[in-house]
Design a protein around this nucleic acid. Structure first.
Lengths: 209, 209
DNA sequence: CCGAAGTCGAACACTACTGTTCGAATTGAA
DNA sequence: TTCAATTCGAACAGTAGTGTTCGACTTCGG
């Protein structure tokens, strides 16, 4: 949201409401189609194009606000996950599940953001919530539940990218939104766990194809 | 390349050369910047804009040809990997390494393609080489070296998406091109191997849509 | 109820692209 | 050598967006 009120005067209530409507509509529209025009966003928000530009001087500013909103949402959700009591591994599993829930909400926004504000600024936005994951990975690394043979940042990237891969699969209809959480946990935990040497032909118990 | 010669007459040698130059330049330029204009591509190919349009009627046609070239490259490289003798697990490791090599060559083309021809047609292009991975995963699943508790397609997606994640990390300078192959193998093999007993909850996450 | 803050649609200037057409100049191939 | 294939630059038309300006209208806030 535009925090830069030029002159001290407070913002009127309807302006506040419109900004809210715009950000909400933009979030939805950007998800539906990354290349959506400002005109369409304004229409979706039930607001004039001029009003939109009045609050967000450029397309980039708008998407920036939308991202901030989505990330704040993520940060809040992830921050609410109780990880302090649990062993790092379980905490990570819980975090993954929560992360999926929040990502599932914003799924396609990622694709929109990457081609408008670029991957760098996008990462910058993701930094905060990603930090929670990294902290937890670090904790796990110290107590031996997370592998130490790969760069910490890579493990975080692994989590990050698998989450987004799952989002694409859901969009493509090859995975259900509900099933994704389980699949993610089942894939990610082995990937970040310490490697066990020697596992030739072992077959998992209870294989039901 | 435009295979549709209108009248039986053969194509002249310089035309052939230009087409070659255009596809090569377009491949490079699309990688550098997905939103590159036809004008810039023509310039990079050392060719007039009209000539470009003469061979590729639209931007989409051009990217299509570029993708075809890249994918053919991938298919050839991956097809040359000797997998028949090896156990599925080793074969998979070799395939991952080769896949990384070829992807490293085209890294950012993926991002370009996704926003021009769309994710669907892109997947369509990737289908061929991805099939090699899926076949191998299937083989591994039968002989017990690959986990059977997740949808086959998801495992292929896991490989696919981690490869592209690595590409982004390399671009961002957080990973070296050479180191990526090792990191990928170390991450992917545990992710697709049969799970040890005692993991996660009792539920089997193999629900596809 | 008054004034300022906010909103509206319409129109404008601007930019950047795509794809086309022209005639003139080359160049490969027979 | 000859001719068709191919190339070239330049200019054109068309599209689609961005961001701005205008004057009139509405609504909030005190």
């Amino acid at each position: 949201m535009p925090t830069d009120r030029k002159h001290g005067g407070r913002r009127r209530a309807d302006a506040e409401r419109n900004i809210e409507a715009i950000v909400a509509a933009a979030l939805a529209e950007f998800c539906r189609n990354p290349g959506v025009s400002m005109t369409d966003i304004a229409r979706a928000a039930g607001v004039g194009r001029v009003t939109l530009y009045g609050h967000f001087p450029s397309r980039e500013d708008l998407l920036d606000a939308v991202m901030a909103r989505a990330i704040e949402d993520a940060r809040a959700t992830l921050g609410a996950v109780p990880t302090d009591g649990l062993p790092a591994r379980d905490a990570l599993a819980a975090l993954i599940r929560s992360a999926w829930q929040v990502l599932d909400r914003h799924r396609r926004l990622h694709a929109a953001a990457v081609q408008i504000i670029g991957p760098d600024r996008l990462r910058e936005h993701h930094e905060q919530p990603l930090l929670l994951v990294e902290d937890l990975l670090d904790r796990g690394r110290r107590d031996g539940t997370v592998r130490a043979d790969l760069p910490p940042h890579w493990l975080a990237t692994t989590v990050y990218s698998m989450l987004h891969a799952a989002a694409l699969e859901v969009d493509a209809g090859r995975l259900t939104s509900a099933g994704a959480a389980d699949v993610l946990e089942a894939t990610l935990l082995p990937a970040i766990s310490p490697v066990r040497q020697r596992d030739g032909g072992g077959r998992g118990p209870g294989d039901t194809a």
